[in-house]
Design a protein around this nucleic acid. Sequence first.
DNA 1: TCTGGGGTCCTAGGACCC
DNA 2: TCTGGGGTCCTAGGACCC
Length: 411
Amino acid sequence: MKTFFHVDMDAFFVSVEELFDPSLKGKPVVVGGQPDERGVVSAASYAARKFGIHSAMPLRTAYKLCPQAIFVDGHRERYLEYSEKVFVVLQQFSPRVEMASIDEAYLDLTGTERLHGPPLAAAHRLHEAMRRGTSLNCSIGASTSRLVSKVASDQAKPNGVLWIMPGGEARFLGPLDVRKIPGVGKVTERNLHACGIRKVRDLAALEEAFLEERFGKWGLALAGKARGEDAGGWFDGEVGEGDDPKSISHEHTFSVDTADTTAIDAMLVRLAEMVARRLRDHKLWTRTVQIKLRYSDFSTFTRAKTLDHATQIDTELAEAARALFHRAWSGKAIRLLGVYAQSLEADEGQTNLLEEEKTERWRKTLKAVDRLRDKYGDGTVSLAASLKAGFRARVHENPENLPGKTPKKEE
DNA sequence: TCTGGGGTCCTAGGACCC
DNA sequence: TCTGGGGTCCTAGGACCC
């Protein structure tokens, strides 16, 4: 018999901000940006949720719902720091920990009864340890599968613990809306509703053949989920598997849509530089470069190109990104630009000797550049290709709105 | 309501090879 | 000649998650 926990921090970003500014406690707080900015709510305090504010809602909408709410810019470094503290606490309970995102994790506690006692008691002890170790509240779901534990932690919120006994999975899931199943979003919910399926028990009662015919492979996975099984999709494999990223990307939404080629090129180069930097940090190389562009009407296009050799070099990424962009661009004003690296490879496989020497020289240069950026901020050092274009663009775009760190000092 | 940024996984068609 | 089937890679788009 397996035992899994799902641990989910309560209103994580808001709670961390409260630790830095206790006067926020109990007030309607919105993390994500200022009310006049383009952007969405990253997290809302429980007081703010009472006004109907929730994450992913446009900031302007949140402001209309609750003008007296306190709007706070997000501080990623703070959340990463606290995410690390969460991880440390979790590791004390089981070496089999997998952070599923910055604020939630799965624990495999199978076979730890003699050490931790029965699941419910262990969950309560973990809950208390989290409070002591991080000063933050969390909710914990415990059961025989990751899926059921995840749903359970959601039902336990805020600040609660819920254990679903072995054999009780179907009874627990049955009365819930299908939307509660991880992986069932807006579209799948609508499709299920169209078939008259509203509750998990409706889903569980259906023939697998019907679901497969209607929804394909996804339908089969859905049937398993309705029974509380982990198989198929995100819950495959062991807890703690999958460390290297499969893609690295940066995107930016302009504060005002732009058709200015100079500003666009500068942004593409900048995004490419940030992606390349992170590739080097991870010791990874990309073979497939992709760009994304979104027009004022929100229509979105992507263009990808697989290179003849893997790279982690700013200018190669930037050149590929610019070529892709100009192939796809209609000339209309742009709302968003993105640069993506896929088909990532580990730090080997540089076969061509000449190529190797060339990239080696580059790597030395870039290492120096990376050090400078660490010292003076991301905006300080740009490679030649971005220098000309970059300068004007920084005048156009308020530095506060630029991705990455704001330059602390101009060289 | 006027819609971020970082990801993962899936589908489907066409190219290309055997 | 007017026609197979499988495997893999590439590309574009989309659902979903936090």
